[in-house]
């Protein structure tokens, strides 16, 4: 698992971006976290493995700096990085339409991975706004797993679609001399 130095620097920057983007979301009062934008960006530029490591280390560092609970969700970030990387390899980040589809796929898969963690480790509660929706769904008779799935799926879809679109826009707006040095990006360059 050897990454070249430039890729390492890219990953380090992406990890910071993942964490700082939350602040920006607060400034524009956006209810989405979009905290995987660095992960997806690395996946597009350097492949699934780099993306996965970026995601996992984001959770680790977040846990060191702010809230240890975040560390429990590292499998989700890992999967986001892996899936985004493989989709990029298939050319699914070549234009904005396909990117939205990638966002949907990543949103669904990451929710599937998150649900067992939320339900079995945290009893169905995430500590975020989705808990209100979960509570509501349970109160009208839905089973817990389904409620968690539905409540989190909608937010997660919106979040991941926005994340993928932003990562796509960032990558496409970088100067050519930059993207030229990340060969993996060729899968997505148009």
């Amino acid at each position: 698992m050897k990454f070249d130095t430039r890729t390492l620097v890219l990953m380090a920057i992406a990890i910071v971006i993942n964490i700082v983007v939350g602040q920006i979301a607060v400034w524009v009062k956006l209810p989405l976290y979009v905290d995987a934008v660095g992960t997806v960006l690395v996946a597009i530029l350097a492949g699934p493995l780099a993306g996965a490591v970026t995601g996992v280390l984001t959770n680790v560092i977040w846990g060191l700096v702010s809230d240890p609970v975040a560390m429990a969700f590292f499998p989700v970030s890992l999967v986001v990085g892996l899936v985004a990387g493989y989709l990029a390899k298939l050319g699914w980040f070549r234009n904005i339409g396909m990117t939205v589809v990638s966002g949907i796929v990543i949103g669904i898969i990451s929710t599937i991975v998150a649900i067992p963690i939320i339900v079995y480790m945290f009893g169905g509660v995430t500590g975020a706004g989705t808990d209100f929706a979960t509570t509501f769904l349970v109160s009208v008779g839905q089973k817990l797993i389904e409620s968690v799935a539905i409540a989190n799926l909608t937010t997660n879809l919106a979040d991941k679609i926005l994340t993928c679109v932003i990562a796509f826009v960032i990558a496409s707006r970088m100067p050519n001399r930059f993207t030229a040095s990340f060969p993996f990006y060729q899968h997505s360059a148009s």
Binding site: N18, I19, V20, G22, Q23, V26, Y33, D35, A36, T58, N59, W62, V65, S66, D67, V69, A70, F73, V76, S77, V80, S110, T111, V113, A114, T126, G127, A128, N152, N156
Partner: peptide
């Protein structure tokens, strides 16, 4: 997915 269980309290 959620990497923050609750609101961020700064980056220190």
């Amino acid at each position: 997915m959620i990497t923050q269980g609750s609101s961020q309290t700064g980056t220190a």
